[in-house]
Design a protein around this nucleic acid. Sequence first.
RNA 1: UGGGGUGUCGCCAAGCGGUAAGGCACGAGACUUUGACUCUCGCAUGCGUAGGUUCGAAUCCUGCCACCCCAGCCA
Length: 560
Amino acid sequence: MIDLDKIEPSNFIEEEILEDLKNGRSKEVITRCPPEPSGYWHIGHCKAWIIDFETAIKFGGYTYLRMDDTNPSREQGEFADSYMADLAWLGYTPKKMIFASEAYFDKIYEIAEEMIKNGYAYVDELSQEDQLKMKGTLTSPGVNSPYRDRPWKESLDLFRRMKNGEFPDGSLTLRAKIDMAHPNILMRDPIMYKISRQHHYKTGDKWCIYPIYDFAHPMEDALEGVTYSLCDITFRVHRELYEWFIEKGWNKPFAPKQREFSTLNLENVLLGKRYLKQLVESKKVMGWDDPRFLTIVGMRRRGYTAQGVKDFIKSVGVVPSESTIPFSALEFHIRNDLNKIATRAMVVLDPLKVVITNYEGENEEISIDNNPNIENGGAHKASFGKTIYIEKEDFSDNPPPKYNRLTLNGIVRLKGAYIIRCNKAIYKENGEIDHLECEYIKESKSGNDTSGLKPKGTIHFVCEGDCFNITIRNFKNLTKAEYLWPSKALADGVSIDELLEPNSMQESTAIAENFLREAKTEDKFQFMRKGYYTLDKDTTENNYIFNFTIGLKDSFKVKG
RNA sequence: UGGGGUGUCGCCAAGCGGUAAGGCACGAGACUUUGACUCUCGCAUGCGUAGGUUCGAAUCCUGCCACCCCAGCCA
């Protein structure tokens, strides 16, 4: 049993729940994660699901995964499995996976009949256009339908015949009898059931009438025993209707509560389903799991961690007010988590050959810590020898101020190995550097340094004979930085080609220490001094592909 | 013009009548065999605005202003 006195509510919803629990309004916290199975989840959905699960967990309750599949024209069954996988990745296990259609259609229908008998609902014969005309406007009241006050027996008979398929699609509707002059337009006799002969992926052709969200959702919540139905702020105005249906349609001592929080708005991120779909279908990206997408599968392939995503969502907070989050806030949490878990490795992205002139014989073994931030994090073997490669940018024959790397006649430490001094740069005919000639300081071996030398910098390297070529997929933001709101830009008429950042994915080759051959798909690494990378699923034995996840912070600034 | 929601640092966000937490970003410095990490310091006389109540107001009251959402047989 949870000790209520020990719970610290972290937002306004939790405060209310705690209060309910303490005064007996609620006995337990049961939430639901109700996707409409019609597309892939993205980081925006994550916020809602994380709140659903975390809220329940905090109070010792649980969460159902409920497919909100009341509209046969939109849903496809193929997504259900992907949702389970996405939740598993986020680290959540639903109490049960439920298909609303399968589990509740019969009961919701019975409730509708009861409501007709109690005078709370009627069958309307008005066309969709006429209903719209009589709805009124934001500032003027609506007009009652001529069928509004027909005897309940007549409505019940018509409703049953609707169900039996006696009327064409769209000809009749079941409407809630509330108030056509209500200031909240949603309360002006909203539709509860429509006639639609579309094939449903789950219930097949069993039904030709389908309940509308506003009626179906509160009934599903109630039937399921959900105590807190958490949703985004869009539904704030629906709350009044939700409560009306609970009162008139459910009317039992227990009643679920709907509470709302604001949606997640991330700058520079394209999330609209139709736009992503367009990019996938036109092959401008690799698929729904393209690492440039912030779909869950995309983030996963990019190398983001579930923990990082969760930390980010939690940092944003649960409030009812709209907010806009800069992308750097997400990056901070991803980097932060990766720093804790990623294995360090040495990879040279842009190689410059270095010959150690005073080194003779076989390569020798050196040791690289897997992660200096983890106590007893272990280490792996690498090599040092006659020929090595360093980054081109780690050498300069004309160094800017405060340059801590290798210079002509300067010294630098090779990570995990020796201090070297550069004696000579050999140039090609075109003036570019071809390779360097350096000497190593024998008594400066890592962990055993008696040289007394104090180089200002440490650089990474790989050793010939103990390395292999890998493919790097470099990513930039999918859309141009000047479009803070990509979806809005598209809606405003900006073309997709104008919006897209050119060459946001580019492949290159790099040289990696042999240790990386052991990498498995989705393993996460920090290529020291460069950034975080993860092994892509496209990897083959002869072609290791690493996706660039995110760079390290870099406070070195070259002036001028 | 009706109804609902929201306004606290560049961006999030605590605050719930006792004198503005924290994080991101940014800047300065220390440390460092990753220019990472870590650490230290700086960063709102001010809480949309105008009044009022109070010994005391971001918090209570009143008026005004700004922004967002709502008229699918979508969710």
